[in-house]
Design a protein around this nucleic acid. Structure first.
Lengths: 253, 253
DNA sequence: ACAAAAGTGTTTGATATACACCCATGT
DNA sequence: ACATGGGTGTATATCAAACACTTTTGT
């Protein structure tokens, strides 16, 4: 929620620099302690949560815009990003269109426009990300997927669509590689798969299958200090992984 | 290629009615006589081929825009449409941006803008579609996938992306249902799969597998008049098909 | 010593692959 | 009669599912 002067400044700046009618919203996934997490922002002066997003500079490739936005929110370069859907209902941004309508005439009010938003999902290494709020928000933080706050606008739909996409692309994109830390144990990787797929998997069959793909390397040292038998540590063999993904991780036709 | 007056009229109309910076391009697939076909337009006064496309009305859902555009080009309602990608390189429409730059100042020239284009693929029943050119084109016609003309702008990339998407979604979308006529023979359906997948399939295994899904109904009468043994006719059991697609047509995890 | 986590192996059924034979029809 | 397209069947390998035992480690 802006004050009037903030709004005027923002609109002037936006009109000059950004493409009208277009926004980008990002579903940033992380994985930590067996939980799939999503990055969300809490607005200033509003009890309102949003996905991180932004606009496209007038001469900027949309991928760069998404990368730029996420660099600001996470501090990370080289984020794995996938565009997954455009949300184009003319009423989808209605609450924003009305929010400032008494403060500025529509012709000067950036938010009075209809916005299409391009949805990207991002996969980041949880421990390296530094959640950082933007100028509209007071908080940028991870939330567990099963403990998400209500999201404004159609951001819940965007999240759900991202999740469905993630599930479908699990065998075609290096999702494990981008969400797991460098080294991880087999049960940790299994937990990720179970969370994304929303169902339990058999421990032994999972291990046999994923090792069968030849995309993992096992370290010499097992992890120490756990309360039980020390598990082996694995890392992705990126070259084999990329190669395997070309055909998809299981057969078909 | 417009005359100056045509250009002025078009731009005035476009500025008033359409969202700036946004276009829609459609890859319309049909299937006939064992060939996958794509609908293309040939421009007036240019040796140039394009995919059918258009713009989004200021208060129109983008799905409706795609539907409207395709109704104009094919005469069909209720077309199966899937949004598959946004192409957002700021230079992608450069040839159009420069084309009329000596005719109209950029401020009045609709085409001087950068355009993001939203890619949709459509699956239509070849025999019912009535290819109809638009105001910029002299010809709207089907072309075999392996006999495509060179396409302008990034439309070849759009086509390729659509094909890749089609291949990936073959087991998750009712692609056969929307591309085949009501009744068809098993070899015809197999040809469609082979064309989309780009490889030969074993006749007997294909039949067993696809029948195993329980998504086809066999008619009583075989097709007559062929030069050889009369093949059975099949049609899709839409209810079972939809049900089967929810999980995907083959297992995984 | 025991509970909990993790590593490894076996049996069974299902599915994919490869391949061979028979039938119908027009020339 | 035969060439061609089309229907059907069977053996084999491969993979997925279900399930049990053993090892390690902290308490």
């Amino acid at each position: 929620m802006f004050t009037k002067q903030e709004l005027i400044d923002f609109c002037n700046n936006a009109r000059e620099n950004y493409l009208a009618h277009i926004s980008i919203d990002c579903v940033v996934f992380g994985f930590h302690e067996g939980q799939l997490k999503v990055l969300v922002l809490k607005m200033k002066n509003e009890e309102a949560w949003y996905l991180p997003g932004g606009f496209v500079l007038k001469n900027e490739p949309i991928e760069n815009a998404a990368t730029r936005i996420l660099k600001e929110r996470t501090g990370l370069d080289e984020i794995f990003l996938q565009q997954f859907h455009v949300f184009g209902d003319p009423e989808r941004s209605r609450p924003h269109r009305d929010m400032y309508k008494d403060m500025l005439p529509a012709s000067e009010n950036w938010f009075a426009n209809r916005f299409l938003t391009i949805g990207y999902y991002a996969l980041v290494d949880f421990v390296n990300a530094m959640p950082t709020p933007d100028q509209h928000s007071i908080l940028c933080t991870w939330r567990d997927l099963d403990d998400m706050p209500a999201l404004e606008l159609d951001h819940s739909v965007i999240l759900k669509t991202a999740l469905d996409t993630l599930r479908l692309q699990l065998n075609y994109q290096p999702i494990g590689y981008n969400l797991m830390p460098k080294e991880f144990t087999m049960p940790e990787l299994q937990k990720l798969y179970e969370t994304i797929l929303g169902k339990k998997l058999d421990r032994r069959n999972f291990q046999r299958r994923i090792l069968g793909f030849g995309i993992l390397k096992r370290s010499e040292q097992p992890r120490k200090g756990g309360a039980h038998k020390a598990p082996y540590l694995y890392s992705f063999d990126l070259e084999n992984y990329q190669e395997a993904l070309k055909e998809g991780l299981k057969s078909g036709w």
